[in-house]
């Protein structure tokens, strides 16, 4: 096995990096592809809580890097899905405890143990972000359908390209189909139009994500959740499967098209 390293990042905080990392990891492992999730958010660890593994932490990322334990000892095995592991971040340290070279070395050692290595990047564009993208073969940028989040995604896309890690792929998280339909939320076309990047996932807003995080049971394990389904689709696309994007809402209504035509003077 030679794992592919995928880093999930966003620039802006709170758009769903950790949720996406946990759920894509769960979905990949459920499909039979061994996955290791690494929490690179040193000092603010949360991936353990989203995955429901917070009570089983003995060693963390910084312990491995500083040689206090073997890599294998820091890998927490998931309770529900076989071949899913978490390497948690250290909580009492900061981003400078690990270097980009440390991350590359760690991932190279891990590559023979699994098929996928998923790195949950911290928010921001500083050291933690640099650590998280250093070993990446592929970067997934996650955003919400909001001006601030899309703006930050654009900045991150530029930085990733400058680092030679591009082109990334985009996940649009927390879409509300009803609001998009009414014209009160940016839709995927609006966002793809300005970012000019390939789409890999469209995740609808779903209350089940909250209940899942309450319970530490990633929503990708919930067969009836629309968000869970979207994360499972992302995992299948990562594996090279052609998975069509489910239309989350009807195409533009007749009236809206007419009004757009009238407004633009008929030039589109």
């Amino acid at each position: 096995m030679t794992a592919k390293v995928v880093t999930i990042t966003s620039g802006k905080g709170g758009v769903g990096k950790t949720t996406a990392t946990a759920n894509i990891g769960v979905a990949l492992a459920s499909l039979g592809h061994p996955a290791v999730c690494i929490d690179a958010d040193i000092g603010l660890r949360n991936l353990d809580v989203i995955m429901g593994l917070e009570n089983r932490i003995v060693y963390d990322l910084v312990d491995v890097v500083e040689g206090r334990c073997k890599l294998r000892q820091s890998m927490i095995k998931d309770k529900r899905v076989p071949d899913l592991y978490l390497i948690p971040a250290a909580q009492a340290r900061d981003k400078t405890s690990v270097s980009p070279q440390d991350m590359i070395r760690l991932c190279d050692e891990l590559r023979s143990h699994c098929e996928w290595i998923l790195i949950d990047s911290p928010a921001g564009i500083e050291r933690g972000f640099r650590n998280a993208i250093a070993p990446a073969d592929l970067v997934l940028i996650i955003t919400n359908p909001e001006v601030s989040a899309v703006r930050d995604a654009d900045r991150i896309i530029g930085l990733i390209e400058a680092e030679g890690k591009g082109p990334g792929q985009l996940i649009i998280n927390r879409l509300k189909p009803e609001m998009v339909k009414k014209g009160d939320m940016l839709g995927e076309e609006d966002i793809l139009d300005v970012l000019a990047i390939e789409l890999i996932g469209l995740v609808p807003e779903d209350d089940a994500v909250i209940t899942a995080s309450n319970q530490g049971n990633p929503v990708a394990l919930n067969a009836s959740s629309s968000a869970g389904n979207a994360f499972r689709d992302i995992a299948r696309r990562l594996n090279g499967e052609e998975v069509p994007f489910e239309p989350l809402y009807d195409q533009q209504g007749f009236l809206k098209r007419i009004s757009r035509l009238v407004r633009s003077g008929g030039d589109r």
């Binding site: 609001m179 998009v180 009414k182 014209g183 009160d184 939320m185 940016l186 839709g187 609006d190 009236l255 809206k256 007419i258 009004s259 757009r260 009238v262 407004r263 633009s264």
Partner: peptide, 9 residues
Amino acid sequence: LLGRDRRSA
């Protein structure tokens, strides 16, 4: 119809 709908999106 007159294209006055300026929705927030």
